[in-house]
Simulated assay, not measured.
Amino acid sequence: MGQAAIAASPRRDLGTHYGGLFLEVIQYAEDCANLMIKKGWMEQPPLAPDYKALANRVKK
């Protein structure tokens, strides 16, 4: 959607501004991910349940 707005705009400097903003957002996301790893909030992504083990589990 942003690309269409840049293409339709008569201003030539918007692409540069969006590019710079994009780089800032990427750096911010990396900083947040590093902080989450440091705090132990993002050690391992969630795993899917082991459906075979669940199916073979004996019901009480």
Rank of each mutant, 00 (worst) to 15 (best):
M1C: 07
M1D: 06
G2W: 01
Q3A: 10
Q3L: 11
Q3C: 10
A4Q: 07
A4T: 07
A4F: 03
A7E: 05
S9C: 15
R11P: 01
R11H: 12
R11T: 04
R12G: 06
R12L: 04
D13E: 11
L14A: 06
G15C: 02
H17S: 00
Y18P: 01
Y18M: 10
Y18S: 05
G19R: 09
G20K: 02
L21E: 13
L23H: 12
E24N: 10
I26H: 04
I26T: 12
I26V: 13
Q27N: 08
A29Y: 13
A29S: 05
D31Y: 04
D31E: 10
D31N: 10
N34W: 12
N34D: 15
L35F: 04
L35C: 00
L35I: 13
M36P: 02
M36S: 07
M36K: 11
I37H: 09
K38E: 10
K39Y: 08
K39G: 01
K39Q: 15
G40I: 08
W41V: 12
W41P: 02
W41N: 06
W41E: 13
M42V: 04
M42C: 15
E43G: 05
E43I: 11
E43Q: 13
E43F: 14
P45G: 12
P45M: 08
P46A: 11
P46M: 01
L47A: 07
P49Q: 09
D50I: 00
Y51L: 10
K52S: 07
K52H: 14
A53Y: 03
L54G: 03
A55F: 09
N56V: 14
N56T: 11
N56Q: 09
R57F: 06
K60H: 00
